[in-house]
């Protein structure tokens, strides 16, 4: 392999290694040993808060939903097949979590609709449910995806101020990030070392050629 090609390849590998180290270390710090990523937002709009499958089923690990209202009133979290949830909320005012931002830990919320909330408690579409005063927690597995989670007061009363937090926990992410950082470090060290040695060899080679040329003359 020509020296110039080898050096270019070494530079690319070194840069990649550094990227891996930076990304891996960054993820390790952000996720922590428990491998938790949290996303939170507060809805002030009246109505229900909806977490559609695009957010709820965006990962393959269980998602813990926590909903808290500061006035201590009842909070209900339910999940249903997305088709059913969409149908029962079709004419209701809802605030939808449309995206998560990592590592910012935020949720995008968009309010839509203006109709009164249907009393969701009588319907049989809900697979999982949790209700509690002040704050409710619900762990949603991914076995029945796509599903939609709905946060309400538990009846037809509108929620006006509720903070919703999604927690994704996967210890594997921590170890994957650690592995990426380690592999990146190894790559970077070997590539930089090769670059260093290669440059020295190239310089020595140049010097040798120059001396030979002078002797010929």
């Amino acid at each position: 392999m020509p020296v110039s090609t080898r050096r270019a390849l070494g530079a690319v590998v070194a840069a990649l290694g550094i990227v891996f180290v930076a990304l891996g270390a960054w993820m390790v710090v952000i996720l922590g040993p428990s491998g938790e990523a949290q996303f939170s937002a507060t809805s002030k709009a009246l109505g229900a808060v909806v977490i559609p499958p695009g957010v709820l089923n965006a990962v393959d690990v269980p998602v813990q939903i926590t909903a808290t209202r500061p006035d201590g009133g009842p909070v209900s979290i339910v999940t249903a097949p997305s088709n059913d949830a969409r149908a029962i909320l079709a004419n209701s005012a809802v605030t939808t979590a449309s995206a998560v931002h990592f590592p910012d830990g935020t949720l995008d919320l968009h309010a839509s609709g203006a109709g009164a909330l249907t009393d969701l408690s009588s319907s049989d579409i809900w697979r999982l449910a949790a209700k509690s005063p002040g704050s409710a927690h619900l762990m949603v597995d991914q076995s029945k995806a796509p599903e939609t989670a709905v946060v309400t007061s538990g009846d037809a009363t509108d929620l006006g101020d509720v903070t919703v937090t999604l927690t994704w926990a996967n210890r594997g992410w921590f170890f994957e990030a650690l592995a990426a950082a380690t592999i990146g470090a190894v790559l970077a060290v070997f590539a930089v070392n090769d670059l260093w040695q290669g440059r020295a060899l190239a310089v020595r080679s140049d010097v040798g050629e120059t001396k030979t040329s002078e002797a010929t003359v």
Binding site: L23, M27, A37, P52, P53, G54, L56, N57, A58, V59, D60, V61, P81, S82, N83, V100, F102, P103, A145, P146, W168, N170, W173, E176, A177, A180
Partner: peptide, 15 residues
Amino acid sequence: GATHALLGIHEAPNA
């Protein structure tokens, strides 16, 4: 999507 790929974030499956 690099960070999303690291967390395994993907499109929700179809019903």
